[in-house]
């Protein structure tokens, strides 16, 4: 299948989904406060008193901030584990155990420790999404053909050369697959943070509108959250294209 035909199919599927949603609501006669049509939801976007701009901005900051922090700390930690096998032996199992702690359940504690606001929510997003980055990047860094190591060692490659010329570039595909998982989790983390305690953000807005049974605005908030996540995912895909895919597809 041609590339453009692929894009066309993907676009048609999205349009199709919206159409099915619309007509399912219209034909079934479900009341608007139970399930609005896409148009009902979209109309809410033009209600100035909802302060959409602020909410979008706050949630975007939390998602992108938490994710960036996770990417930086995650990669740094994976590199540390590779350079210090002792740290890896001690800390990796601990990390696996800590990862089992449901981060969602920790959010109330974070509120006690950090109060509420953008930064605490960033940190919740960070804790929820950094583990896959550490794990996949570490795997990528250590997964090198032993014979390739022998080959470069036969000309006395030092650890730094092996790291920069083989391990680090070799780990990039792994890093990006970890980041794709993390992008989804970062959104969930930020919204959970806003659910637990917040005064702004799309998650906060969702809860407030729920009290008023304002389903249209809730669905619109959900769409916006999805768009933020999609934008983050798009950034990751773009970086992956620049650093990995571009070099692996036939010209």
């Amino acid at each position: 299948m041609g590339r453009y035909r692929g894009y066309l199919y993907a676009f048609l599927a999205h349009v199709g989904f919206v159409l099915v949603w619309h007509f399912a609501v219209v034909w079934s006669g479900v009341p608007k406060f139970i399930m609005p049509t896409p148009l009902d939801a979209l109309r809410e976007l033009f209600e100035p008193h909802y302060n959409w701009g602020t909410h979008i901005w706050v949630t975007t900051l939390e998602v992108f901030g938490g994710f960036t922090l996770a990417a930086v700390v995650g990669v740094a930690m994976a590199v540390l584990f590779v350079w210090l096998p002792g740290a890896n032996a001690a800390l990796m199992p601990l990390l696996v155990t800590l990862n089992m702690v449901p981060k969602v359940a920790m959010a109330p504690l974070f509120v006690i420790w950090l109060g509420f606001g953008i930064v605490p929510n960033m940190i919740i997003a960070f804790t929820i999404c950094f583990f896959p980055i550490v794990l996949t990047t570490y795997r990528g860094l250590v997964e090198v053909e032993p014979e390739l190591i022998n080959l470069v060692k036969s000309v006395r490659a030092n650890r730094w050369q092996i790291f920069t010329k083989i391990q680090l570039p070799g780990s990039l595909p792994y890093l990006f697959s970890g980041m794709k998982v993390a992008a989804v989790l970062a959104v969930a983390g930020a919204i959970v943070g806003e659910f637990i305690a917040s005064d702004r953000g799309l998650g906060n807005f969702l809860l407030i509108q729920q009290n008023m049974l304002n389903t249209g605005a809730m669905v619109m908030a959900l769409i916006l959250i999805t768009l933020i996540g999609t934008a983050l995912y798009g950034v990751v895909l773009a970086l992956e294209w620049v650093f990995v895919t571009r070099k692996e597809v036939a010209k």
Binding site: E145, E147, L148, N150, L151, S154, V155, R156, K165, I166, P169, G170, L172, V244, K247, E248
Partner: peptide, 17 residues
Amino acid sequence: PGRDIGMVFQKALLLKW
């Protein structure tokens, strides 16, 4: 030593990037 050796293995072991 550490200079005058060239190695070839069963796998080509080329860096794909």
